[in-house]
Write a protein that binds this DNA or RNA. Structure first.
Lengths: 199, 199
DNA sequence: CACTTGACATACGCTGCGTATGTCAATACA
DNA sequence: TGTATTGACATACGCAGCGTATGTCAAGTG
């Protein structure tokens, strides 16, 4: 069967995003050549500028894809941990673990802010936050946490988790450092609990 | 009196760093032209590449200057708050307040990581952390905090504080959001206390 | 007072982005 | 079904900006 035009266009978008994701991860945004990148996908810069406007546009699409994946994954982990406090802790650990991937570090944590600006304004980041905010909301209804601004707590927790991943990844013994980071995360998070942490 | 060569060179370094700081803050690293920048300082790119090696080298010098200033300032605030727990809280609020300056946001929080890599590896950031670690160390000696890894806590607190500044700055009502951020910061920080937070 | 060093300027090449223009296949329409 | 039209993508061009190779002249040296 002949492919429709819309289908083919969707294919090229997918190919370009995949190529961009690879190039940005391996060389960083600044050093990734659009000529090389598109050629690798069997296309030219023409396709890129037609579909995404400019280099930044492709970056935005790539970032959106990556941290949509992260949000989905972390949310899933949180829910299968049973939601509530356990879910929140599992989500935090999941974020740190996901952010250990070099691809995430380079694209989302290092280059993303420089290219796209403040991460708290990204649509995808708001999707990530939503999971945390929802979980915190449940806890608030159960009167389990202090009466503080939930959004603020969620943002600080997310920021702390993502940042600590860079530290973990750069450490000599990532495994041991990961454990320290998760423990510290849980320790800080316990500050919002009304009852002392169950350690 | 005639100026010695070393003195003149020091002057050009200072001029270039000042010009870089201004240009990077106003246009961002990528869009800052080294030709313009150096011309504004009454010099040429020759001086720049002689003194700093490349564009990144100047960026490193600028970042180092800025967050050395931040470390000094925050430490001062923490000490005049009397050290200990009050000092730690004051330090945190000070970091958030310092990071509200557009110059800091653009250079240190957005472009810095992309250009220089993981902030936790910057020499200057380690200076910033040192203050927090010292304060936490005092508290540990007084047996006031839980037996967790101090470095990990310090890194998470610093990361949370700096990140929240971006959120505050981008909000509709920065003043109100600042209060929320500081309250949330103190709430999370209280998680390391053995005795429940004095709220 | 010749000589050397080195701080900085000048000149060049190359890479790479964005855009203007061209082309050809897929749809619309008669 | 043949013609017109759109639009997805390729090709070609101009320009900015980085890094480097080379030049110059004043400050230090013996």
């Amino acid at each position: 069967m002949a492919k429709t035009r819309a289908e083919k266009m969707e294919e090229t978008r997918i190919k370009l995003i995949a190529a961009g994701r690879k190039a940005f991860a391996e060389k960083g945004f600044a050093s990734a050549s659009m000529d090389e990148l598109t050629a690798g996908a069997g296309l030219t810069r023409g396709a890129l500028y037609h579909n995404f406007g400019d280099k930044r546009g492709l970056m935005a699409a790539v970032v959106d894809q990556i941290d949509t994946e992260m949000a989905t994954e972390a949310q899933k982990v949180g829910q299968s941990a049973g939601g509530g406090w356990q879910g929140l802790m599992a989500e935090g650990a999941a974020y740190i673990k996901l952010a250990l991937r070099p691809e995430v570090q380079r694209i989302v944590l290092l280059d993303g802010p420089a290219v796209l600006g403040d991460p708290s304004q990204w649509p995808s980041q708001n999707r990530c936050l939503q999971a945390t905010i929802t979980t915190l909301g449940e806890l608030a209804e159960q009167d389990a946490i202090k009466p503080v601004d939930i959004e603020a707590i969620a943002r600080l927790l997310n920021g702390a988790a993502l940042n600590s991943a860079l530290w973990v990844a750069a450490s000599d013994d990532p495994h041991a450092t990961f454990d320290k980071a998760v423990t510290a995360f849980e320790c800080l998070a316990s500050g919002v609990l009304k009852t002392p942490a169950p350690n």
